[in-house]
Design a binder for these strands. Structure first.
Lengths: 115, 115
DNA sequence: CAGCTAATTAACTTATTGGTTAAATATTGT
DNA sequence: ACAATATTTAACCAATAAGTTAATTAGCTG
């Protein structure tokens, strides 16, 4: 039942509230109350979201007096980016261009297509 | 209740079976039975996963006789990569290096650190 | 048409998720 | 020690997700 880390990362990110929290934290550290402020949701709900983010390693929490300031941690995002990178050819067009190129040289035209 | 597309994409990806299906499809088109073969899961379960992937736009399905060949679609991955890119500074170290640089020039040393 | 293969739909079960309110805990400041 | 503020935990609820088996649909082929 213990999930692989990519699954944990993606599940944590698959919630708009949690992504909004990360967006806020990308501007700098914030307390739980700070983070809760933009939402209609109750504080315990935010607390739960933060726990999910923390278990995914996407945030870490310090301790200053009664506040528990949160900060964004990039490591899981890096892993995600690396995973995603293996699919790049499916969106950046280089594969199609290579495909075109292979078709072209097979036709035996050393100058490539004319328009 | 209608989810934004990033949420839909991330939820679809947040399942190891579905990511394995995408990995398989990155090698080329496949039928539902082909895709089901590596898993212990029942065929209806795979069918459901495919529906999730299709609704997320991560795959498309053709029709050849009684087969419904699936192919990977990169567009949602591109959007995800773009979103992720806005967080790059949290993992690639450029932010820290910039920080070091700023500290350096504030010290007034035009040649930077010595070791 | 009958039968085979491919895939989906229906109906159901179980576990997880995302939220709630109320109570508890932690830490500071008087 | 007490009150105030910040946050978490507990207990609960409704909706969703991921799986099952059984039945159905779709298309080919003899």
């Amino acid at each position: 039942m213990t999930q692989d880390s990519l699954t944990t990362t993606l599940s944590a990110l698959a919630d708009p509230t949690r992504r909004a929290i990360l967006a806020r934290l990308s501007q700098g550290q914030a307390t739980v109350n700070d983070l809760a402020e933009p939402f209609q949701m109750s504080l315990p709900a935010i607390s739960k979201h933060l726990k999910v983010l923390e278990r995914a390693g996407l945030i870490s929490r310090g301790r200053q007096a009664q506040w528990r300031p949160c900060r964004l941690e990039g490591a899981p995002l890096k892993s995600l980016a690396e995973w995603l990178e293996t699919y790049r050819r499916f969106w950046d067009g280089s594969f199609d261009r290579m495909d075109d190129y292979l078709k072209e040289i097979q036709k035996g035209d050393p100058n490539g297509p004319r328009n």
